[in-house]
Write a protein that binds this DNA or RNA. Structure first.
Lengths: 216, 216
DNA sequence: GCGTGTCAATACGCCAGCGTATGGAAAAGA
DNA sequence: TCTTTTCCATACGCTGGCGTATTGACACGC
C-alpha cells in the first residue's frame, strides 16, 4: 500500500480523467499526453497502467456504462410509483451538465467503432426501464412502448436544448421550471382512460410523403 | 467559364465535402488532406480556394446554416395549418440520416468555439418557428413556449434514438411508424380546451430536490 | 542494508496533418 | 503567339500525439 505524498495514480484515475476529457473535448480529445498534463504527470505513467490509448477508452466506457446503468437506474428505481419515476426522470434532466455532455459526445462519436456498442447498451437499458415504468401503469406493450419512446425523446431532447440553447431553458430555481415540469408530467402521463382503452385509434390518415432532399 | 474534362473544383465543393466529413467523422474529422483524397485532388487545390482549415469550417457552417433555416423552414412553412406543420415536423425526423448526423456532430462539438454560435442560431430559429406555430393555434405566449419546447425535444430526441437505437425506431414503411406518428400528434397537439383555458394549473406540487452526483 | 517491485520521467523514432513555397499545365486574353 | 491567369501537384519544414526503451526514485520485504 504505497500512498505517500506522491499521490500515485491508479488506472481508475486515468479512466476518470479520460471520461472528463470526453465530456470536455470529445472522444477524439482522449489523448494520452494532454490527459497526462491534466493529471500533472507524463505519459511514462500512463503506459505503465495501460497498454495503449484504446485500452484507456475501453476502461472509461466501462466506468461510464456501469455508472449510467447500475447506479443511476438503481437510484431512480427506488421510486416505486411509476408516475414518480417519470417525474424524477424529467427533473434529472437538470442535473449534471457534465454527464449529459459525455452522453452527447459518445452518442455522436464514430471513430472507435466499439463506442457505439456502449452507447447502444446504455440507451437500450434506459428505454427499457421507461417502458417497464409505463407498463406498470397498466398500459399494453405497444402503448407502453409508444409512451416510453416519447418520454425518452423528451428527456434526450431536453438535454440537447439545455446545451444548445441554455437561455431558452428554465433554470431549476425559477418558477417557470416547476411549471414546465408539471406541464410535461401532464403531457407524458397517460390518463386512466388511456390505460383502460388500450388500443390505438383505428383510422390511419394519410400524410404527404416527403420527397425533399435533407430533413429538417 | 473553364469547364473542361478536368472537373475543376470550387470553394463550394470543398465546403460541401467538409459538411459531409462532419457528418461522417465529426468536426475534428474536417482535415484538409483526407478531404482532398476524397475529392481526388491534393491539398495544393485546397490552399488555393481557402487560406486555412478554419476558413473551410466557416464556409461549411455557413452553408449548413443557410440550408437548415431558409430552405427547410421555407419548405415546412408552406404548410399553412399549424397542425399540419407539427405533423410534418415529426415526419421529417425520418428523413436524411446524414442531416441529423451533421446536426448531432455540430451540437456536441466544442473545439472551434464559433461552431456553438451556428448551432445556437439554427436551434433558436427552429424553436422560434415551432413557438410561432403553436401561437397560431391561439395559445398564450407561455403555453406556446411550453408546447414548443416539448415538441422540439421530441424532435431532437427522436433523431438521437434513431441513431443510437435504430432497431427500436419504427421504419417509415411499417404501420408501427404511422401509428406512432398519430400517437405523437395527439400528444403534442393541445386540445381546444387547452387553447381556451390558457393558464396553467394553479397548484404547484413539491418534488424531491435531487442531490445525486451525476444525472440520469 | 539490499534487492525487488512499483510508479513515473526522459529521450527517442514514427506518423498524420497543417501551412508554405514553388513549379507546371492549360485555358483565356492580348 | 505569347503572356497572364487559373487551378492543382510536389516537396519541404513544423507540430502534436502515439508507442517504446531506458533510466530513476521510492517503498517494502527480508
Amino acid at each position: 500500500m504505497t500512498k505517500s505524498q506522491k499521490v500515485m495514480l491508479t488506472a481508475n484515475d486515468w479512466a476518470e480523467a479520460a471520461l472528463d476529457a470526453i465530456g470536455r473535448r470529445g472522444v477524439e480529445g482522449v489523448a494520452v499526453e494532454p490527459i497526462a498534463r491534466d493529471l500533472g504527470v507524463t505519459k511514462g505513467s500512463f503506459y505503465w497502467h495501460f497498454p495503449n490509448r484504446e485500452a484507456l477508452l475501453v476502461a472509461a466506457l466501462q466506468r461510464w456504462e456501469a455508472r449510467e446503468t447500475d447506479e443511476v437506474l438503481d437510484r431512480v428505481q427506488q421510486e416505486t410509483d411509476p408516475r414518480a419515476r417519470v417525474k424524477r426522470l424529467i427533473t434529472e434532466v437538470n442535473t449534471s451538465k457534465k454527464a449529459s455532455r459525455i452522453y452527447s459526445a459518445l452518442s455522436s462519436a464514430t471513430k472507435p467503432a466499439f463506442v457505439r456498442d456502449y452507447v447502444e447498451r446504455v440507451s437500450k437499458r434506459r428505454l427499457d426501464f421507461i417502458i417497464d415504468s409505463y407498463a406498470a401503469l397498466g398500459l399494453s406493450a405497444e402503448n407502453a412502448r409508444r409512451w416510453a419512446l416519447m418520454t425518452f425523446s423528451v428527456f434526450l431532447g431536453s438535454l440537447q436544448i439545455r446545451r444548445d440553447l441554455p437561455d431558452e431553458w428554465p433554470n431549476a430555481d425559477e418558477p417557470a421550471f416547476a411549471e414546465y415540469v408539471r406541464f410535461l408530467m401532464v403531457s407524458l402521463m397517460p390518463s386512466e382512460l388511456d390505460a383502460a382503452n388500450n388500443t390505438p385509434a383505428p383510422d390511419v390518415p394519410e400524410w404527404p410523403a416527403r420527397s425533399g432532399s435533407q430533413g429538417f
